[in-house]
Amino acid sequence: MIRLLGVLVVVIVLYLAMIASDPNARTQSTHQVLAGRLGSYGVLTLGVGVLILSGGIDLSIGSVVGLGAVCFGLLLNRGVDPLVAACAVLAGSMGIGLAHGLLVTGLGLQPFLVTLCGLFIYRGIAKWSTQVPVGRGSSDAMRLLLVGGEGDGGRNQILVMLLAAVLLTLFVHGTRHGRYLFAIGANENAAKYAGIPTNRYKILAYVICSMMAGLGSILYLLENGSADPTDAGSWLELYAITGAVLGGCSLRGGEGMVPGMVLGAAVLPLIRALCSFNNVGNEIEFAVLGVALLLGTIADELLKRGTLRRAG
């Protein structure tokens, strides 16, 4: 709970700092852009957050977004109905998650390695399937619904993300399935000895993560209008993991809250906006991000020690 309050304070402070730094920051269009980014990052953060709290990790998210967006575009360009195409992309990405889960549980491979291989494989397939960027065909209605109209910064994405967040909150914090994910993340052996089908739940976590990446790929193409197979979605896995960690997920597993993930996902877009309004060059943006993550991690560690000392 303290962790959640902490990240909430950080988000509020960043927001106020941004508002205070430039009159342009208060405009509706700024907020629309922010909402769009929070939505698109948030979807990925939620997915990887659920995976992280169950003790897994996924480095392939960005490549899944890239491959998903390219495939979505190719399907649309062939005249496939947008809804069917979107479902196909979601199903395909869930298949990717299933493969990750099976490799991790069945063969006992390390999640880091499996998904690192995925990062290369899916990017490679995306590049191989088309040499040129693909457009979004005639998917205007879907775009209007999920992303918003032209020039409004993709604001509807935040609604998509919030809907997903509500569903995941109920699932993770309200059902026994969610409890099992936490238990597996905290001590997989003990979960197994308690009669929980741990492998099934681990696979489920990978499927959720990749499914959210698939959703992210649909939003990506709809928002950007085209997807370049060489770089669509690159870096996004790191943004997503950063958001999840800032939002209170421990990479050791067993810790995290869905609302925290949403807040954590907001930190990155706010820092980027803050940088741009303060005329800090784009060049330094990554460094600022890195420092922010480091500070967050340090604060978390200190907080944890304090709690332990009090409990002791």
């Binding site: 905290a186 979960a191 067993g254």
Partner: peptide
């Protein structure tokens, strides 16, 4: 500690787990 309990979980959540 390894197989019987999830140490960071509360007494309540450990009792409820199975």
């Amino acid at each position: 500690r390894l197989h019987g309990l999830i140490l960071p979980f509360s007494i309540r959540d450990n009792l409820a787990l199975p």
